[in-house]
């Protein structure tokens, strides 16, 4: 039986709840991600993608509903427990601000482990392993300013991988990349996924989404539809996404 890495029940999120104009961004979202899956969440701008991701990633709390990650209910954690949970169980790849410019690639990748106060030797091997998975062994001593956009994103991916997270979250990770670099990062993510790491990607870009194996469509704070790649080749799946978007966006 495959375990569920992410499981949500009837998630609601209302912004400015106590104000004159409360805004309900999520209106009851139930979804699950199984171990080893590569799931995409698509939707127009303002549909609630970031809100959902922030809640799944313990960066924000839902107004009601439950979120379980790796079997643990994360909606009732204290802020310290949430922080520890993030550093141990979750990996992140963001759109534009990825790396600390004052640290080398090596130090950037090591940060999540340093935060857990891991031993220097442990950190060393973990960083090496993550770096070689992404093919950036020779970039470790460089500073972010000496790297290209694609290289930076790969360093960020290595950082997301380094603590062996249960799942990696990406919020429009290709948003700031040109098509070549975007393609490279998506190939890398596919590669990571094939090694057994679960990935949840939020995007509004059909090309990025076509790398996922399953796509959930979100509209006005609700999951509207779902499609599976199955064994289809990627360009066929891409066409299917475009068609779906055409009907879904109406």
């Amino acid at each position: 039986m495959t375990t569920k890495i992410v499981q949500t029940e009837d998630l609601h999120k209302t912004y400015d709840k106590d104000s004159a104009k409360p805004y309900e961004a999520l209106k009851g979202i139930s979804l699950s991600v199984k171990e080893g899956e590569f799931v995409g969440i698509m939707g127009a701008s303002g549909s609630g993608k970031t809100t959902l991701l922030n809640i799944l990633a313990t960066l924000d709390q839902p107004t009601s509903g439950s979120v379980e990650i790796d079997g643990q209910d994360v909606t009732h954690l204290t802020s310290n427990q949430m922080a520890d949970f993030r550093s141990k169980k979750l990996g992140f790849i963001f759109q534009d601000f990825n790396l600390l410019e004052t640290l080398t690639a090596q130090e950037n990748i090591a940060l999540p482990l340093s935060l857990q106060n891991a031993k220097a030797a442990t950190i060393q091997t973990a960083v090496k392993t993550a770096a070689s998975k992404l093919g950036i062994d020779d970039l470790l001593s460089k500073y972010p300013t000496q790297l290209s956009g694609g290289q930076k994103q790969r360093v960020a991916a290595a950082r997301a991988l380094v603590s062996n997270p249960s799942i990696i979250f990406g919020d429009e990770p290709t948003g700031a990349l040109d098509s070549t670099n975007a393609r490279e990062l998506l190939d890398t993510l596919t590669n990571i996924n094939q090694q057994g790491v679960s990935i949840l990607l939020v995007t509004h870009d059909p090309f990025s989404a076509s790398f996922c194996k399953r796509i959930l469509f979100i509209k006005d704070g609700k999951i509207g539809d779902e499609i599976n790649a199955g064994d289809k080749p990627r360009n066929e799946f891409y066409q299917e996404i475009l068609e779906k978007l055409g009907t879904f966006e109406q």
């Binding site: 310290n80 993030r86 550093s87 990825n98 999540p112």
Partner: peptide
């Protein structure tokens, strides 16, 4: 601010 935002996301305790 951006750096601290990122550190928060990757799981840094507020006290740290």
């Amino acid at each position: 601010k951006i750096r601290f935002d990122m550190l928060n996301k990757i799981g840094t305790r507020r006290s740290v």
